[in-house]
């Protein structure tokens, strides 16, 4: 068990972290329907059972296939219904206050993309409309994210480009430079990422965070072998919970240095994203004729 309190950084592209490992859940039931190593589900399940959190805001099911809806899981059974990645937006932060109100939560778990982790931390430091929420964020788990898609984009990619009905999709994945669609009947369609680019959510193009730098624990498939996930443990809270979960036997881990493709790939993709989007941010400054588009990193004006 690698467990150190000093902060390592490979470069700012990976944010601050205390530990980085390759991991997967030891629970077969969780792995069965998870995207990769079942990290998010396993960590929340452990935290729920131990009372570290009393509920988790996750991307739940809605009345349309692969269209997520924020959902507050307060039991492991409820958590199990929301495994897997949906590649379009679940406004999980929209429930962060309600969780402390009609749901009565005191210790919230929340999973989200890097931008949602940014929203959570801004909300804690500048809780303009989030009364009594800041001290109730018990575990914020971030997921690696290159970009996200509007629901309609996913629909067009799956139904038009891949020629698969949304209802028959078993799993979607982005990896190895491709967008993958797996069907219930075993067929696999892969689309080159250049097809997907135009469908990306525009707001993603100014995002300067790939590996959810502001989460307590962040995770994603990149850097680890199939069926495993790369995990960054970032904060004191994250370190504490991760350490306990490891001690409780929730995860198998391997040192990140010993797996392929390893941290180098994570770093490479993070740098690609940041460089590309930094350029977008800069281009916005001269977008019109002596007229700029807004830059939220400079001011709210």
């Amino acid at each position: 068990m690698e467990h150190s309190s000093e902060v390592k950084t490979m470069g700012t592209e990976l944010g601050k972290y205390k530990t980085c490992v390759s991991a997967r859940s030891t629970n077969k039931e969780i792995l069965k329907k998870s995207q990769d190593g079942g990290i998010v589900t396993q960590l929340f399940a452990y935290a729920l059972e131990e009372g570290i959190i009393d509920g988790a805001i996750v991307a739940g099911q809605s009345d349309e296939p692969y269209r997520p809806r924020p959902f507050i899981a307060t039991t492991v059974e409820e958590l199990m219904t929301s495994r897997g990645t949906r590649y379009n937006i679940s406004p999980n932060v929209s429930w962060i206050k309600e969780a402390t109100r009609s749901f009565g939560l005191d210790k919230i778990g929340i999973v989200g993309t890097p931008c949602q982790m940014q929203a959570v931390r801004k909300g804690q430091l500048y809780p303009v409309g989030l009364r009594d929420v800041p001290d109730k964020i018990a575990l914020a788990v971030g997921i690696f994210c290159m970009e996200n898609f509007p629901y309609q984009s996913i629909k067009q990619l799956v139904e038009d480009h891949a020629g698969v009905k949304m209802e028959s999709v078993k799993k979607m994945d982005i990896g190895k430079g491709k967008f993958w669609v797996y069907t219930e009947r075993g067929a696999v369609v892969q689309l080159p990422l250049k097809v997907t680019h135009k469908y990306e959510q525009p707001g993603c193009h100014v995002c300067l965070d790939y590996v959810a730098n502001l989460s307590d624990v962040s995770t994603g498939s990149v850097g680890s072998p199939d069926g495993w996930s790369t995990v960054f443990v970032r904060t004191k809270k994250g370190d504490d919970i991760w350490g306990k979960a490891i001690a409780a036997g929730c995860f198998e881990t391997k040192p990140i240095e010993q797996v392929k493709p390893g941290l180098e790939l994570v770093s490479k993709l993070a740098n690609e994203k940041i460089t590309k989007n930094q350029k977008t941010v800069e281009e916005r400054a001269t977008f019109g004729v002596n007229k700029a588009l807004r830059n939220p990193y400079i001011s709210p004006k």
Partner: peptide, 11 residues
């Protein structure tokens, strides 16, 4: 062109 749908506003 900046919204990424996090949900902060609704909260």
């Amino acid at each position: 062109g900046l919204c990424m749908g996090c949900g902060s506003c609704a909260a």
